[in-house]
Design a protein around this nucleic acid. Structure first.
Lengths: 250, 250
DNA sequence: ACGCACCAGATCGTACATTGTTTGTGGGAA
DNA sequence: TTCCCACAAACAATGTACGATCTGGTGCGT
């Protein structure tokens, strides 16, 4: 019998402290299933888009993708349709697929939705948090502070794990799934940037404050804090994007 | 040459005033584009799911669908993948697609997200509403009251049109798109039920109150009203679903 | 009654034909 | 010479057909 805890580590990476926090979706989400080839292709292409290996607006030529991944065109076509349904790819009739650009508007839209949804998820969590949940949050927070933004990739994973602890058991699977999909995009975007010192301090402070509020059972205050937390995060990332765009243009 | 106007009326219903309010998505949303055959197939199958012509958990056999729609299997396969990406269809490896059941949890989840998002959309609209917008709202509201739930289908279309006026120009396309997709599902679900007298009165009253608040520029109060409006709507539909399920079981 | 082989049916991957788009070239005019 | 347009050829998307593989059930034999 395989325990749930073990399953987390099937990602192919060596067992290490980090792997405990390898970001994974809330359970029951990816139950969409897939055609054997299709699933891997879908994941591969989506990763390429999110990680930026496929540039914005780049054409996605089925024959090329098929050759590159060693299959025929049909699995590629299905993967692209799947991505279209999730909004990562845009189709034009008789002109094929392009990578949907993840621009400032896109990111802003996603953050704004997060500001609306995450407080509700948080409020529910405050009422449902167990001792283990809080211990887990404190453990992750300890690792975040230990890492102290030295490894931005690691911070990104830890931060995602922190919030996943809060949201993963929410009864509204739709909302949790929405949050997770948005999170995946934002994680990749924010990974391209560094955190300002002010933002670093704010993150640490707000996380600590959040844990305190959860302990005290202050649901409303925790929700309000999360609202500010997400908004601040969005503001920060958008500033970075704007700065980089300005630098590129100038 | 066939005019666009004619194509709208292929649904089998006669030309009537209603067509002015045939629910249509906010502009710029369905820019996903599609493969010529694919798009119609996608729409047809999705309609069949939403309208309940394809039962929950029913198997979706590609060859059958292809025959029924007079094409080969590939367009069907792509349409199904697209629907998978949007959550209407569930795939099992080597076992094909099934219709995702639209159960109470599903509907509740969607309504809850609406309660979170729609107030924000409304708040923005109050600050941006023009005289024409308000006139349009009053016109639609007049038709709603004129119809007075005699034709539930027509009410459903008019109600959707009412809210579309408010949300269609919102800068957050992602949120508007999300609202629209949810709306399509809820429209079909609620069409299967009748409105209680209490609910009818509440809808009329809240719509009137909403218009008044918009005129007065009371953004916060309008947002709070919409929150109650959506919640009440959700509560009503869920009650109906529960009642019907209980009746079926007992 | 139980198990195993076999068969029907459906999915999934491959190959190909058709149709529409894009691109590159050449000739003619300014 | 340079610009523009027509035309053609390459290219890619879309639809069709087919074979391999998997699943589920039926019926035969024990």
């Amino acid at each position: 019998m395989i325990s749930d805890r073990l399953c987390i580590n099937l990602g192919g990476r060596p067992l290490a402290e980090t792997d405990d926090f390898k970001a994974k979706p809330p359970p029951g989400i990816d139950a969409i299933g897939a055609s054997s080839e299709g699933v891997s292709l879908y994941e591969l292409i989506r990763e390429d888009i999110i990680e930026g290996r496929l540039a914005a607006n780049e054409r996605l030529v089925v024959t090329d993708l098929a050759r590159r991944h060693g299959t025929s065109t049909n699995p590629v076509r299905e993967a692209l349709q799947l991505l279209r349904g999730e909004g990562f790819v845009i189709f034009s009739p008789n002109r094929g697929a392009r990578v949907r650009p993840i621009d400032q508007d896109f990111v802003r839209d996603i953050y704004e939705i997060g500001v609306l949804i995450e407080p509700a998820l948080t409020r529910w969590f405050v009422g449902m948090a167990t001792g283990e949940d809080i211990a887990e949050l404190e453990r992750i927070q300890g690792l975040i502070e230990e890492n102290n933004f030295a490894d931005t990739f690691r911070h990104s994973e830890l931060d995602t794990a922190f919030h996943t602890v809060m949201y993963q058991r929410h009864y509204n699977r739709h909302a949790a799934e929405l949050w997770w999909k948005h999170r995946e995009v934002l994680r990749a975007v924010s990974r391209r940037f560094n955190f300002t010192l002010a933002r670093r301090a704010a993150i640490i402070r707000e996380h600590r404050e959040l844990i305190a509020l959860i302990k005290a059972g202050e649901a409303d205050k925790a929700a309000e804090l999360i609202s500010r937390h997400v908004e601040g995060s969005g503001r920060h990332v958008l500033e970075q994007m704007r700065a980089r765009n300005a630098a590129r243009a100038g």
